[in-house]
């Protein structure tokens, strides 16, 4: 459907495929702590509940979800830009 774009260079990476919700988002938040607003985090995340919950929670916290790439192994790469601290 959409043209595949080269994802922006991520300044941070976190793998949350080893935990279940809500620890997926807790780990994501901790990873975002290490970044400055405007920087990019790449999150390796499982299909199912995590992929339904984490992007939504990121938006509610004021971050910008840039993209979701299928890794082809049941996991996804979620790319998010850190919002302003508040």
């Amino acid at each position: 459907m959409s043209q595949k774009k080269e994802p922006p260079q991520a300044q941070g990476k976190v793998d949350v495929t080893d935990v279940v919700c809500p620890m997926t988002f807790v780990k994501t938040k901790v990873a975002l702590d290490d970044l400055d607003p405007g920087q990019i985090l790449s999150i390796r995340i499982n299909d199912g509940e995590p992929i339904r919950n984490v992007p939504q929670s990121l938006k509610e916290d004021g971050h910008l979800v840039l993209g979701l790439n299928d890794n082809g192994d049941g996991t996804y790469e979620l790319v998010v830009k850190k919002g302003q601290d508040r």
Binding site: P22, M23, V26, K29, D61
Partner: peptide
């Protein structure tokens, strides 16, 4: 830095946007 056990123990605080890891 938080240990994994701390992240889990305090997860319901950390999830709160106003509270977070800082709180």
């Amino acid at each position: 830095a938080f240990t994994n056990q701390q992240l889990e123990r305090y997860s319901r605080h950390i999830l709160l946007r106003e509270f977070g890891t800082k709180g």
